[in-house]
């Protein structure tokens, strides 16, 4: 597993629940684990052990934990860079949704070997968008769900997200329905393309 995934998971647990909780989860995952390096490669099994240990320690289901991770990735102040990268997708939430098709390719420009899932957006009409998520690490669709939810909030779009009961994407895929009534929005967070580049 790419270290970035493990490091994100570690950052999520540390920033949300504190160092003590992280250390406890790390100890229960592997005897000598203290932390992850984002630019290194780790065994897939270790990632799954950490997720399982975190679920036990926090009494959360794996889908809930992964969705919280997705929300953390784009909304926590420590992850402002990821949020900025996501906001490059477009000036409004609709444009952002359409940019998801390109997101894995864009991300691979920077990290060619990171395990991003394939994403495909279908406009179902009547303000409903269907996002199919395929591949990537197991459970990644829950992370995507958390990201979409947080980004809708970021753009100030009021949306309802549902798991779609469909096998359209085939096995190894999951489908999220995004209901976006056209006239419902509130003030989103400020964003400028160049906020982070000058530093």
């Amino acid at each position: 597993m790419h270290g970035l995934v493990n490091r994100s998971l570690q950052g999520f647990l540390q920033d949300t629940y504190g160092d003590e909780v992280w250390r406890d989860i790390a100890r229960r995952s592997a005897p000598d684990l203290t932390g992850f390096e984002p630019m290194m490669e780790y065994e897939d099994a270790l990632t799954h052990d950490v997720i399982a240990a975190a679920c036990r320690a926090l009494s959360k289901t794996q889908p809930d934990l992964l969705e919280d991770l997705g929300t953390y990735l784009v909304s926590h102040p420590n992850m402002s860079r990821v949020r900025r990268l996501m906001r490059y997708g477009g000036d409004d939430f609709r444009a952002f949704l359409h940019s998801l098709d390109d997101l894995p390719e864009r991300a691979r420009l920077i990290l060619p070997d990171a395990p991003f899932p394939g994403l495909r957006l279908t406009d179902m009409g009547s303000g409903i968008y269907r996002l199919t998520c395929r591949g990537g690490m197991p459970g990644v669709e829950h992370v995507v769900m958390g990201i979409i939810r947080a980004m809708a909030d970021d753009y100030g779009a009021l949306v309802v997200l549902d798991w779609a009961e469909t096998a359209d994407g085939g096995p190894d895929s999951a489908t999220i329905d995004i209901h976006m009534p056209a006239d419902r929005f509130h003030e989103g967070r400020a964003f400028a393309l160049t906020d982070g580049l000058a530093s």
Binding site: R84, Y88, A107, L109, I110
Partner: peptide, 16 residues
């Protein structure tokens, strides 16, 4: 805009 994305991402990766 893709260039901006790349610069931002590259900076993040370099920092790490």
């Amino acid at each position: 805009v893709d260039m901006l994305y790349l610069i931002e991402g590259k900076n993040a990766a370099m920092t790490e």
